[in-house]
Design a protein around this nucleic acid. Sequence first.
DNA 1: GAAAAGATAGTGGTCAATTACTATCTTTAT
DNA 2: ATAAAGATAGTAATTGACCACTATCTTTTC
Lengths: 202, 202
Amino acid sequence: MEKIRQKNLPADERRNVTVEAVIDLAASTNPGDITTAAIARHMKLTQGALFRHFPNKEAIWQAVMRWVAERLMTRIEKAAEGIESPLEAMQAMFMAHIAFVSEHPGAPRMLFGELQGAKPTPAKRLAHELIKQYSERLNGLLNAAKSRGELPPELDNQAAATLFIGTVQGLIMQSLISGDMAQMRQAAPGLFAIYRRGIVHP
Amino acid sequence: MEKIRQKNLPADERRNVTVEAVIDLAASTNPGDITTAAIARHMKLTQGALFRHFPNKEAIWQAVMRWVAERLMTRIEKAAEGIESPLEAMQAMFMAHIAFVSEHPGAPRMLFGELQGAKPTPAKRLAHELIKQYSERLNGLLNAAKSRGELPPELDNQAAATLFIGTVQGLIMQSLISGDMAQMRQAAPGLFAIYRRGIVHP
DNA sequence: GAAAAGATAGTGGTCAATTACTATCTTTAT
DNA sequence: ATAAAGATAGTAATTGACCACTATCTTTTC
């Protein structure tokens, strides 16, 4: 009594497969150009069947953003876990972020694509929350580093946090443009080294 | 003999107006969602009339990218002109870039939007050329700074150039997200200061 | 008055979403 | 145990909205 090929997946699992299909497609397609037909084709389903599990396309996008936010944040938290030095923790977060993106190139593209949008869709709200959570985490680490004497007290937290995120975003952008994700992991340590010297010095 | 209201513009000028209309719309609309109808409406023209001046939509996008590349590069060249210190020149370029973007928020969105695309359109080729030209300019300045003793010779040019562009891109991204362009010009000096300390220090 | 620029009204194609139907799995009654 | 009944998942065809682009007629400009 073996399940060789399970054609009909339960609803929950089908939704998960859908999200992964979108992330997959986003690695090589502009998110705005991903059609429901393309998603369905990629998971070997008919286009109409998608709407048995999602009320509309926007709901799919929402599910994808939730997936990205959850996976990215837990990945970053885990990386920083148990590291006593805040500066070292920031470096670990940086590397974990880059590693996550190099495994899922579609993830940042969905995020950027959503943030570029004009009107406030539910998916965009999720993207905003992710960025906000990220910034607050960084701000906490910067303050901790200051009270431990690892960073000068006069450092502008806002600027330091913006530059951290900007460095990640910039590196991702360059890699997306060149299409070479391996290069990203290689360049990451050098970039963080420059950033670190910039915030450490008086 | 006064031209109070010239309804029918000559072809050249109409093309310029079209490009400006697209940049204008891109400030508040995802580039991929800008329709020819929206462009025409924004310049108080009927949709079909656009195709008297452009063979197709792709040609419009090409013209826009040319506009962005030309204006941005001349702006940056002018800013660095006559500054003897390469590091000071880089700072001037940084500020000029930020100023340009804050005046034309649609410009970086068109650029990013085009670079995200999968297949190689003519407009995307132009975008690539812009980035390449920019990188080479930076590389030259970094080398000049090294031979003048303003930067340590062991500095990784590739990393420094990536971080420069990344810093600009990251700042732009954050401002696009918050929708506050004034904040960008305010935050720019602090960001460049951190970057500068990062590359100067041994 | 001729050429250039614009208005009007289409065309074919693509997309998200809907509908009517079929297949497959699960539960329940005997 | 097993067949009937109900629930769940998927198919195939269609719909209406919208889009880039075109053909034809009208107005403006020199």
